[in-house]
Every structure is written in structure tokens, then in C-alpha cells.
Design a protein around this nucleic acid. Structure first.
Lengths: 329, 329
DNA sequence: TTGTAGGCGTTATCAC
DNA sequence: GTGATAACGCCTACAA
């Protein structure tokens, strides 16, 4: 069912039908009614592909997510989608995977689908490869990065104070008498590297020597957190606190400590970062650095909407991170 | 950069460029090389919108997810996406929300985007509204439902034995001496109703009278599981086991029981359904009915691929659910 | 082996 | 008010 079919049925031209569909003025009420009745009767739906071809806009935005299994990312996508939907935008989500080239390839893909705007969720999009891909394919499309930032004229970024926040965690732990701390990350992303820097700075502020700054890396899973905790305990039986780059790992750690009958937080304190649902699920409940995911997402959506409306605004927004103390500190 | 630009640069016609791009035969090697060099030099990317308009296929499939925050759904989407990518299909994910009409609207939307196939994740797509929308807009597109089923010629479905599996849970709990059981669900979906039926059947098989079959409903969150557990304990202090429609609720229940110093599973046993990560995170670790998400997803992807290839195969696949016992039973 | 012409479904710009 | 007509970018007969 195309506008031509409807036009034939109504005994008018396709342009008239198009005008009715798009609510353009200058149509006789009688004609309009007749066409609209037909439209409804045959349940006509405009072909968005054809529309996208002639209009350059599609009233849709693309959301690229590094890993769709990451609850932190999908929650962000959820809030962004809701915010954009209020303004009539349709969100299309793509799962890019971790690979840099795949990510760039998706940027190319999405640019060909004529989306009006793009949201990149995950700090791993903050890379030179991606910057090049954006410069190449998305020159005239507003792009907003959640938890990241790139210095391009059409790219906006929302960030949380991860570095300072992590340093605050170290200070909190130390103030509670847990001086000997280790930091565990799952992978090197710009975000995790920021946390790592915050940890190092925090430890140095406590007067720690380089050899007292213990950094570990493990697989990104509950089991990864579980295993690395046992390893740390073997290597540093006197450890007093472990700080994890993500809550999932911290949840694994809490389990390991419980299994080993080590008192949490009395003997070993634990902290995560993200303040996810996992925190409430742990036993004891996990203390965590809240990196303000919801606020970041909403801010990202607003920035995109604003850019889409042609408004000028700062290309970088920084949010405060906040420690949520529960039972593991 | 369009094929016309490349054509002008190469001194050939647009159709020649098109043929080179699509690897059509009957082009002089020399011409082909010249065009390909130009294509690479200017990093030409075909406009997928225009392509979709003329070809009816787009080598892309749409995945509709009822709630993108549901880890169970996004995990499914992840596996499906990976499976389809192997065959060169690009997955586009849409978050529809719970509303029936919104879901139908997305089906309309997606049909206009000329996807080659559609995957619906979540049993809530198993409804007459959706069936009507599919019949209306997706007549000639293969559709596969994960954890659901609709009797339409182009719709395939993958299901787990949720009803029988839930009844098995009841039997297991009873065999361990936990006769007095309650069932809690978060919302009414076809899937949850199946579990509910399984619970009722299981209880009846144990000789329970109608008034001994306790059913509760609560909000779909950790807190919801937490709160309802306290309510149940007040109303039935002699309760011996609680079975939850989803792990998230069960995780909340385990927390509530720990806080109340009730021995799990000695005094009250707990079981979830889904066998998600939450199960390993709980303390004690949650026993759960594994509804074979990964297998379901992979099967769904395979069915879609097969249908896309024009092969005939059964429109319904049923998988066994399996109890995973951990520490709460 | 290559070019021309027509069309996919829509919208915008002119005429009438 | 309404109807031709020409794009949008690509693909595929058909012709040469």
C-alpha cells in the first residue's frame, strides 16, 4: 500500500495524499477527510526507508553499546531511550562488541542508516580509532558519549568524577583503618584507567610507597572477582581492603571472603564502583562508588536533543560521583 | 560520496560502479581495478537507505526486546546477535516497553525498515494484539519468538518446559520435607502464567487443597522480593518454602530471610527460576530452574537463519528445563 | 564489456 | 487547492 494506491482510490494525486499525511496546509477539508478515511481503512504506513532517502532526517537515533550484556550499559540505554522517545525520536540499539575495528565499522553502518543523532555508551568509545571514524562518517551528526569524551566539534561527552571518586574511596577506607589496599580491574578502558589513577593518587596521598600499591587484573565475571580475591589473600595475607573497578567483581570477592570465613568489613573491607543492583544483592551488602548512571544518561539525552535543535552548549559535562556506604566498609 | 561521484572520477557510468561494488561478473579487470582503487581511496560507503529501497532485503534483522533492562532478555539478544553475525546479518535492537500497543507500533516500525527477519524476545509478545500486528505488517517476513509461540505460518517459536519444570521444583521441595509452599510472581505474562500453572499442578500432585495453594504477586525488583517475603512470613509463619517466578525476586527473599535470621534452607527453602547470575551472587547461593536461555537463543537464531534460507522446518521447538540445586534447597 | 533508462516510495518545487 | 515533475542513491533489465 503506497501513496499512489491511496491516491488512485481517492481520485487525487500522490502529492495530495502526501500533504494530508504530513499535515500540510492548503487542502480542502473535504479532500482531506476523504483521504484520511482511506488511509485509515487500508491501514496505510509510510515507508520509512523511502522517507529517509528523500528527507535527510529519520527522527531516529542510533545507540551503540559496547556490550549489551553489561547491565550498566543497557540501563543507560534504557533511560536515554525513554528521554528521547518523549521528543518523538525512535532509538535503534546496536551491540558493537569490544573490538575497535568492529566499533568503527558500526559507526560506518549507522551513518548509512541516516540516523539524526548517535549515542555511544561505554568509555571504550573514547579512542583515536573511533574519533577517526566519527570524523570520517559522522561529520554532520551530533554524537554524545556516555562516560567518555572526544575533542571533535560535533561530539559531546558526559563524565563522572571517577578519578577523584576512587581516590575518595581510598581515603574513606584508610580513615576506617584499612590502610593496606589493593585495586582490581577487569580490563583496560579509559574509565578503568581513570579509576586506577585515582587509586594510585589516593594511596600516595596516604603516604604509600610504590611497592605498597597493589594492582590486579582479572576476568570480567563473578568468578573472576572470586578467584582474584583468593590470589590476593595468598600474596598479601595482611590485606585490609580491596577496591574493585566494577561491582560484579566486588560481588565475587564478598562471596570468596564469606567462604573463607573472613570477617567483612572488620578484617577485610570491600568496595565496588558503579552502585549497581549487585550491591544490594551481596551479603553483606556492598559499599560502592555511585557514578551516577541515570543522571549521566539523562544528561546525555538532553545534550543530544539540544544539539539536534541546533542549540549551542558546552561539549563536556562532568558529574560528581558519590560514595554509597553499605555493609562492606 | 555516491556511485555517481565515483563513476565520474573513474570515467565510467554509475552502473559499472554498482556492478563492481556488488561483485557482478562481466567487467574488464582493468576497469574493476580502477574503480576499486577509487572506492577505497574515497572510502565509499553505500547508502543503506537507498539500497533498502530498491532491494527489498537489507541483510539485517530486527530484535524486539520487551525490556532492555531485563538481563535475561539482553543476554538472549546477545547470543542471537552473535549467531546471526556469523552469517553476515546485522542486528538492530529495539526496546519496546511493556505496553501492548507500543509493541504493535514497533512491529509496524520495524516492518517499514525492511528487515529480513524479526526476533521477539519475551513471552509477553505472545498475545493476540501482536499476532494481529504480525499478520498485518510482517506477513512475508520470518519471525521467531523466544520463549513464546503464535500460530501464524511465518512465526516460529522456541520454548522451555516451564510448566513441567516448575512442577518439578515443587516436587523437589516437597521431597526435601518442605510441603508448605508459596509461589510469587512479578507480573502476568504467558511465561509466568505457565509457571503458575506448574506450581498449582505440582501442589495438587502433593495432595494440597485449594486453600493450601498460596499465590502472591509483587513488584519486579529486589525490594519486591524482599517485602513480599516478610508479608508471607507474617501471614503464614509455618511456611516451609517459597518459589519465585524470577531469580531477582528470590534474591530479595534470601536477603529478607537472612536479615530475619531464618535458617535457609532448613527452616525456609527458596527457589528461583531462570538460573541467572543473581543465583551465584546470593548468600546462600540460590537454587534455580534453568530455562536454558542460551540454548533457546541459539535455537531461535538457527531457526531464523533456516527460514531465511527458505528451508521448511517445524514451527515450534521445545527445550527441557533443568533444576540447578545450590544452597537454598 | 559497458551505458541508458526506469523504478523503488516519498517529499518538495513548481506550475496551473 | 491540486497535480506534474524532479530529486534522494541505488540496482537491474535492456540496448549497444
Amino acid at each position: 500500500m503506497t501513496i499512489y494506491d491511496i491516491a488512485a482510490l481517492a481520485g487525487v494525486s500522490a502529492s495530495t495524499v502526501s500533504r494530508v499525511i504530513n499535515g500540510k496546509p492548503g487542502i480542502k477539508a473535504q479532500t482531506r477527510d476523504k483521504v484520511q478515511a482511506l488511509l485509515r481503512k487500508y491501514d496505510y504506513c509510510p515507508n520509512e526507508t523511502a522517507r529517509g532517502l528523500v528527507n535527510q532526517a529519520t527522527k531516529s537515533i542510533g545507540i551503540l553499546v559496547a556490550d549489551i550484556r553489561n547491565a550498566h550499559h543497557t540501563d543507560g540505554a534504557y533511560f536515554i531511550e525513554r528521554e528521547l522517545e518523549k521528543q518523538g525520536y525512535c532509538s535503534i540499539i546496536f551491540n558493537t562488541g569490544a573490538d575497535e575495528n568492529d566499533k568503527a565499522e558500526y559507526i560506518r553502518q549507522i551513518s548509512q542508516r541516516r540516523v539524526d543523532g548517535v549515542v555511544l555508551i561505554g568509555s571504550s568509545f573514547q579512542s583515536s580509532t573511533i574519533a577517526a571514524a566519527i570524523a570520517q562518517h559522522l561529520q554532520n551528526t551530533p554524537v554524545v558519549l556516555v562516560n567518555g569524551w572526544l575533542d571533535l566539534p560535533n561530539v559531546y561527552g558526559v563524565l563522572a568524577q571517577e578519578e577523584a571518586g576512587t581516590a575518595d574511596c581510598v581515603a574513606l577506607l584508610a580513615a576506617k583503618g584499612h590502610k593496606k589496599q589493593a585495586f582490581v580491574l577487569n580490563m583496560h578502558t579509559p574509565s578503568n584507567d581513570l579509576k586506577l589513577r585515582g587509586f594510585t593518587a589516593g594511596m600516595q596521598a596516604q603516604g604509600a610507597l610504590p611497592e605498597d600499591i597493589w594492582i590486579y587484573e582479572t576476568e570480567s565475571s563473578l568468578q573472576g572477582g572470586y578467584d582474584i580475591t583468593k590470589t590476593i589473600l595468598e600474596q598479601h595475607p595482611d590485606i585490609e581492603a580491596i577496591l574493585f573497578a566494577v561491582d560484579l567483581l566486588a560481588a565475587g570477592a564478598v562471596r570468596a571472603l564469606m567462604d573463607l570465613h573472613i570477617a567483612v568489613p572488620q578484617q577485610v573491607a570491600v568496595m565496588g564502583i558503579d552502585n549497581s543492583v549487585y550491591g544490594e544483592m551481596c551479603y553483606p551488602r556492598l559499599s560502592s562508588l555511585d557514578t551516577k548512571l541515570v543522571e549521566q544518561s539523562v544528561a546525555a539525552a538532553r545534550m543530544l536533543l539540544s544539539a539536534l535543535a541546533g542549540e549551542k552548549n558546552p561539549r563536556k559535562v562532568m558529574l560528581f560521583a558519590e560514595i554509597v556506604e553499605r555493609e562492606t566498609t
